[in-house]
Write a protein that binds this DNA or RNA. Structure first.
Lengths: 145, 145
DNA sequence: CACGATTAAATCGCACGCGATATAACTCAA
DNA sequence: TTGAGTTATATCGCGTGCGATTTAATCGTG
């Protein structure tokens, strides 16, 4: 393995992210969702009105080339609708269906399950989240998003 | 967005990992490598003898279904060879070619570039690495790897 | 109003990442 | 020894993630 501090750090980050997705997987399987689909729905569940593809992408730091197929699968699953915004036909507004909104209830237990499986306190999780968010901001301002 | 602490933490982890890969990308593009390919090569560069697919997978926490295609691409690029172990024909030993070994020199500057772009001190990187490694271990013992 | 520049999504190609399964090789107990 | 069970790798299918490009709509400046 590389013995450089940054490579070791990035590998830890990489493997931890994979491990987290594998922790979500059995919980999301019950809902027929993948992790990115769950992320997109999480944005929708907390949005007062129908966000655009771009604003969901901004929240998750994902390109439209990634997000469009994800949203199409959610549409095919009957969880969201996709419609061009009449005020700006370039934009596509994503709205929850009743089924999509109802799924929030069935997903409500997931966060507590994840916290428990990490074995970390809420303080520890918040500290880590803060550090990772700062890292994320720095890396993204290097490259101009 | 979800307001649950664990979802926010996992999103931060997810976006930070994506950001890290985008930071490596321009550096690795010069070498014709992807990030997982670089990880696999890193294992090989620090291995005294030719490791098996399984041992590389153990180091990176990747399944053979992920690693086999990665290693085949490295083989096609002329960086590694793949041969069945005569002592146990189930195992495949991955060895660096001269070209693959020489690539280590051209990649030597990458870790310092990454450290610099994170804007973090080595202490901060090590602390984060430690926390993420512990998280990784906990999550993986939940699910039996 | 015109028209080049910008913007928002979508499309395409490629490389993961993994679950499920297949295949071949090894182990071990009857 | 043999054959059931285990192990190591490979294969397949699906869903990302993103760079490059395309398409369509809007903006801005003359």
């Amino acid at each position: 393995m590389s013995s450089s501090p940054s490579d070791m750090f990035c590998l830890a980050l990489y493997t931890a992210t994979n491990a987290v997705q594998q922790t979500y997987r059995p919980l999301l399987d019950e809902l027929g969702l993948t992790y990115p689909q769950y992320l997109a729905l999480s944005v929708l569940w907390s949005s007062p009105s129908a966000p655009t593809v771009g604003s969901i992408g901004a929240a998750l730091h994902l390109e439209s080339s990634t997000l469009t197929p994800v949203l199409k699968r959610l549409e095919k699953a009957g969880l969201v609708t996709r419609h061009r915004d009449p005020n700006d036909e370039r934009q596509v507004r994503i709205a929850l269906t009743d089924t999509g909104r109802a799924l929030a209830d069935r997903a409500g237990h997931i966060p507590a399950c994840i916290v428990e499986r990490t074995g970390l306190s809420l303080e520890a999780l918040n500290t880590l989240r803060h550090d990772l968010t700062r890292l994320n901001e720095r890396l993204r301002e290097e490259t101009g998003r």
